[in-house]
């Protein structure tokens, strides 16, 4: 029987790879009896999705602009380097 440490490891790994049949079975059994790991599992999965969406929000937020000084600096360095 898996302990919580092993179960949490598998829960994390399940986001990164397909678990083996044996691992999946072991994890399922553990989650069936352990409400803490079940909680952990739900939170970790939701976090994974949320982080992805924060990044998307930054990418699509038109209020975030390349600062003017940076633009000037880039133009200047391009002009210097094109010669």
């Amino acid at each position: 029987m898996l302990n919580c440490k092993q179960a949490s490891q598998l829960i994390s790994q399940s986001l990164d790879k397909k678990l083996s049949l044996r691992e999946r079975f072991g994890l399922k059994m553990h989650l069936f009896i352990c409400k803490y790991c079940k909680r952990f599992s739900q939170q970790i999965q939701k976090l994974h999705v949320t982080i992805h969406s924060i990044s998307k929000q930054t990418e699509e937020d038109e209020n975030i602009k390349l600062p003017e000084e940076a633009k000037k600096r880039i133009v200047k360095s391009m002009n210097e380097n094109i010669k």
Partner: peptide, 18 residues
């Protein structure tokens, strides 16, 4: 490059910042 900076600079910056 100047045109592209004006047109895509903000987008590229957001992409990198994310």
């Amino acid at each position: 490059a100047n045109d592209w900076l004006n047109e895509h600079g903000d987008y590229l910056y957001r992409f990198a910042l994310a």
